[in-house]
């Protein structure tokens, strides 16, 4: 790692002010993506602003029939939360399959979302639920948040504060994990609301996306058979040593069917 300073701001406002002062500053929450990145010398921040402990980012509460989860809540805390298991159990299940236990003890939901790794699990839940992302400046709809490979709608110095998830009637996440990293080769989050179904796909493309043809079919008929014949075109899907675009396209349908089965059983 290149040398950097470390600071622990005592509030979100202080963190935002420090970010404004220094364009080379970076936020640190759980550090489970950032520290490995620094070890590879792929980034050279002047200072890390540790916001992982801030109470403003650590809340987890019921709100407006849904769940508001603070950005610095750790994956393991979501997985173990009785409140999450009772209200949106699919979120707890998703969090319980990220990395391994020690990763889940440190890595944060907000860190994963703000980083927007194309293979991360959380973006599928955010888009699948149609969540609202609350920053220190504004609210952003899930459909407007993820812009591309590691790219989000967050502006320079903007800090993700919490995410509000509406509560679906039924939801589930099915993932075909990379056997080493547990990142999603393909992951599909299906959420059934009273009037519509949302289907979000991670791992398959440069950014999470909605499978709208599946959404329409499932809104009419919420059974796995309804989407068995629907294939997401392989054009534009990721192709790497783990899976070709053609295989990923196949996996999207398989994972979506499994997610619907799980959601129906939930």
């Amino acid at each position: 790692m290149y040398a950097f300073d470390y600071r622990r701001p005592s509030s979100l406002a202080e963190a935002a002010a420090l970010l404004r002062q220094d364009p080379e500053a970076k936020l640190l929450a759980g550090g489970h993506t950032l520290i490995p990145t620094l070890k590879q010398r792929l980034a050279r921040p002047s200072v890390l602003l540790d916001i992982g402990h801030l109470a403003e980012l650590r809340g987890l509460r019921e709100e407006n029939g849904g769940l508001a989860i603070g950005a610095a809540v750790r994956h393991g805390e979501v997985a173990a939360s009785d409140l999450v298991r009772r209200t949106i159990p699919a979120l707890a299940a998703l969090a319980s399959h990220i990395g391994d236990p020690a990763v889940r003890n440190r890595g944060t939901m907000g860190g994963s979302i703000a980083n927007a790794d194309p293979a991360a699990d959380w973006p599928a839940a955010v888009v699948g639920c149609g969540a609202i992302l609350r920053t220190d400046r504004r609210e952003i709809a899930a459909d407007d948040f993820f812009r591309g490979l590691f790219e989000t709608a967050l502006e320079e110095g903007e800090i993700l504060r919490e995410v509000w998830f509406p509560r679906p009637e039924r939801a589930a996440y099915a993932k075909f994990p990379n056997p080493a990293s547990r990142y999603a080769i393909v992951g599909v989050f299906v959420a059934k609301f009273a009037d519509r179904v949302r289907v979000a796909v991670t791992g398959a493309a440069p950014a999470v996306f909605r499978a709208t043809e599946m959404e329409e079919a499932l809104t009419r008929d919420f059974r796995p058979e309804a989407i068995a014949g629907i294939r997401v075109p392989e054009d534009g899907l990721n192709s790497d040593l783990h899976a070709s675009a053609e295989y990923r396209s196949h996996l999207v349908t398989v994972m979506a069917r499994r997610a619907v089965e799980q959601a129906r059983a939930s």
Binding site: Y6, R8, G31, R106
Partner: peptide, 21 residues
């Protein structure tokens, strides 16, 4: 996982945690 230690009771990768954290 060779570097696991307990930090406030939970297992943490000490190779992926800064001392100052």
């Amino acid at each position: 996982g060779c570097c696991l230690v307990l930090v406030d009771g939970v297992s943490v990768k000490s190779c992926t945690t800064l001392a100052l954290q």
